[in-house]
């Protein structure tokens, strides 16, 4: 059990802008309580920096309760730090003990340029969603709840995939900076539901293509993303994305319509 009032040495990545060279800057903080969250510990550091007239460390955060996905940083080589199924904001200082040294880096991926210090631009994720992460619906009056029957195992699986908060830890943890887990989760959570069927194959084709255009790496099945994911999303979704992608490429539009026509004949 870590004690009250810890003293820690922090090596924090500082980078003034996307084009600037970054470097590690070392700071000491004291009076850190084990009940503080990791971000509260950084708040202490920033107060200290501001009081001494220095530039505060920029880091992204919003909900501070593990649901918005904005607070990602790599702590001692691990995305979101050492605790499984936990975002950085939900990581608590009881994980550390007096005298520890902590290295803090931003997500490192060419598709996630550093904006400042620990803040990266994750717009690449938005563009992957724009490429196919939607379903087309008839507008007008709201449909009745439970109008469409969904088998429980599909509903459960879709919910597991939909737990993705888009934080980018999968990219950060992947040795190839691949966003396969993110893309696969988004492909699956719509592709598993009846409402997602009409666009199922075009969705996967477009999202996989956009993923590559953004400059993310390829999946070599290390499994690091699954270990780092604060929501525990399974790499089985990546296999499913690959399977759907293959279908989308092997069944051309004409053979798809031919098949459907045969089914209805």
């Amino acid at each position: 059990m870590s004690q009250e009032n810890m003293k820690l040495t922090l090596h924090v990545w500082r980078q003034s802008g996307p084009q600037a060279d970054g470097f590690f800057e070392t700071h000491k903080v004291s009076d850190i309580s084990p009940h503080m969250s990791f971000l509260e510990m950084l708040d202490v550091l920033n107060e200290q920096l501001v009081e001494s007239g220095k530039d505060a460390v920029a880091f992204e955060h919003d909900c501070r309760e593990g649901i918005c996905g904005s607070c990602g940083m790599v702590v001692n080589g691990m995305a979101h730090g050492p605790q499984n199924l936990t975002t950085t904001c939900q990581l608590h200082m009881r994980q550390y003990k007096d005298g520890d040294e902590i290295w803090i880096e931003p997500w490192r991926a060419s598709a996630f340029p550093v904006l400042k210090d620990l803040v990266v631009e994750r717009a690449a994720f938005d563009r992957i969603i724009q490429a196919g992460g939607y379903v087309s619906v008839r507008t007008g009056s709201a449909p009745d709840a439970n109008e469409i029957a969904i088998p429980k195992r599909y509903a459960d699986s879709a919910m597991d995939a939909a737990a993705c908060i888009g934080c980018g830890a999968c990219v950060a943890a992947c040795p190839n900076a691949s966003a396969s887990l993110f893309t696969a989760a988004k492909v699956a959570h719509l592709g598993l539901l009846p409402q997602g069927q009409p666009e199922r194959l075009s969705r996967v084709a477009q999202m996989v293509m956009q993923h590559d255009l953004e400059g993310f790496g390829s999946c070599t099945n290390h499994g690091e993303c699954e270990a780092a994911c604060p929501k525990g999303i399974s790499i089985n979704f990546i296999a499913q994305m690959n399977r759907d992608y293959l279908k989308s490429q092997l069944l051309s539009a004409s053979s798809l319509t031919r098949k459907t026509a045969e089914k209805h004949a």
């Binding site: 080589g77 490192r108 991926a109």
Partner: peptide, 27 residues
Amino acid sequence: ILATRNAEARSTPYRKPKHQRSTYASR
């Protein structure tokens, strides 16, 4: 081709990445 793309995707390396799930064989 993939190795080249993967190297470009992580142009700045981590100081010391900590592996949690990957194996010696996969790396």
